[in-house]
Amino acid sequence: MGGGAVLRFDQVVLAQGDFRLSADFEIPAGGWTAIVGPSGGGKSTLLSGIAGFVRPIRGQIEWCGQPMTADPGQRPVSMLFQHNNLFPHLTVEQNVSLGLAPNLNPNTAQKEAVKEAIRSVGLSDHATALPSNLSGGQQSRVAIARMLLRSKPLILLDEPFAALGPALRKDMLDLVKQVQVKNNATVLMVSHNLEDWQTSCDTACFVADNVAHPLRPTHQLLAEPPQALRDYLGR
């Protein structure tokens, strides 16, 4: 790693209430990394730290050699949450346009781009629909279209597709893959699904007992799992 690293945790300790998570490693550019580990181990805290919702009490998180800005909206990050990725009373079009115009006032060129993004996720017929009238998979597509427009180099997935069935989840990951390739982005993905790790992620970061461990190739981590991971997997 080293040279191609874009995201660096420099002796970071994140604090969320009484909970502490320490991290001291790097994530290389362009990869697809699974964040794995038991519930309550700190996976979401790690993502929240990168997104800027949780501040480090020690060390700093660097992006391309520079410390990250404090404002989450100014960070080079697109994040999909587990819930509430869309504003329920805004239409598909408005929700997607937030990716380019967070003030909901897109210009003509931006409106065109919004249309194109909605088309690319296959929702052209639903542009004026409200999220509540869409299926779970369609709602995920809206969020992905917004992510496409934001074109941030870092994509964080905090189990956004956990409620979807296996086939739909695969569709969504394929769509994210397209966004990732198009924007040459780096993906960090929290998932409890072993298959997701194996098919999508070349590297994995194991998070347990208040520590986020340095990345290891997924197949290697699964071949020689540490005890905590073995307990989590039930092996």
Binding site: A51, G52, P72, F81, N85, L98, G99, P102, N103
Partner: peptide, 8 residues
């Protein structure tokens, strides 16, 4: 959080 992350 969504508001903050998209900078609304």
């Amino acid at each position: 959080r969504l508001r903050q992350s998209i900078g609304m």
